[in-house]
Design a binder for these strands. Structure first.
Lengths: 153, 153
DNA sequence: TTGATATTGACATTCATTTTCAATAAGAGC
DNA sequence: GCTCTTATTGAAAATGAATGTCAATATCAA
């Protein structure tokens, strides 16, 4: 059995799951690693495939259930990848907004403090009291701008 | 056959569909009317139910197909109704953002010119060239704030 | 080490959406 | 107004994502 290179992030998640009373199992560990390591949103099936490649015999159901727990503890969240209403995932910290590359999917979180104040203003204009907002930016990351000199599909 | 009170919006859509080479059928007309008349996002099934109440025998499949065409002509768009990744619909004009009431679902569109400039700035910070953005605000509308004196669920 | 039980994976089930296909109806051309 | 081509329709079947069921298994507290 080879020693896995656990990231500090998945270690942290593991502790939080444990503290919340959940057990740490091999399948869960594999799934945590995948999500923590990957710098872009993933679909449940993608996670399933990646995890399956590492340790055999992980069920897709377990992926859904693990995601559920992580979501409950606010360790991952659902994000929307371009117009399409695909359920994908990305680990997050605090309440932040996603900036995602339309080509390679690489993404960052940013806090929207500059804009959040304006949201309240806009709401006020229409008589609304804003309680939630949903913001996501998409574009080409530095890398993909280089590799995309003109506009290849 | 009673005369329907067609809204000017559905009339306009009808013309655009026609100009795009699509035929105007009774089912399509009913679906157009529903979407144009309704001031909140609707799921395909909701549209199906509402349309079915008006003229019998409209298939759910036709609802999906009509939405498809309307979307193609940018007459409706998919929106996300709060965290949940439910596919719902709402008619829109131009590129605008949705402001939606979490209680009754009533909604407005607003142009986000004030904030859009800032989006580019944020992107620049991370080396991204922003090409799309996705913004939705939710809260309580004036009416629901009144009817919701404390915080009834 | 042991034992209660949370978790697992296989399978069945549900629900939303898409595909298939023969029957029908829209509308262009006469 | 009538005819004919073909886009459109609805029913049924097919797909696909997500959830529920359940006996076997693995975790971890004692």
């Amino acid at each position: 059995m080879e020693k896995k290179n656990r990231t500090s992030l998945s270690q942290k998640w593991e502790n939080q799951l444990s503290q919340a009373g959940y057990r740490i199992t091999q399948p869960r560990r594999a799934i945590l690693d995948i999500i923590a390591e990957t710098e872009r949103p993933l679909t449940p099936v993608e996670i399933f495939d990646l995890a399956g490649a590492q340790s055999a015999g992980i069920g897709l159901v377990t992926v859904y259930r693990t995601i559920e727990k992580l979501e409950e503890l606010h360790l991952v969240e659902h994000v929307h990848h371009l117009g399409d209403c695909q359920t994908v995932f990305r680990c997050s910290e605090q309440h932040q907004h996603l900036l995602i590359c339309t080509k390679c999917g690489s993404s960052y979180y940013f806090d929207g403090l500059e804009v959040e104040e304006q949201f309240n203003q806009i709401g006020k204009k229409f008589g609304y009291r804003i309680t939630e907002h949903w913001l996501q930016l998409a574009g080409l990351c530095e890398e993909c701008q280089k590799n995309n000199p003109k506009d290849r599909k």
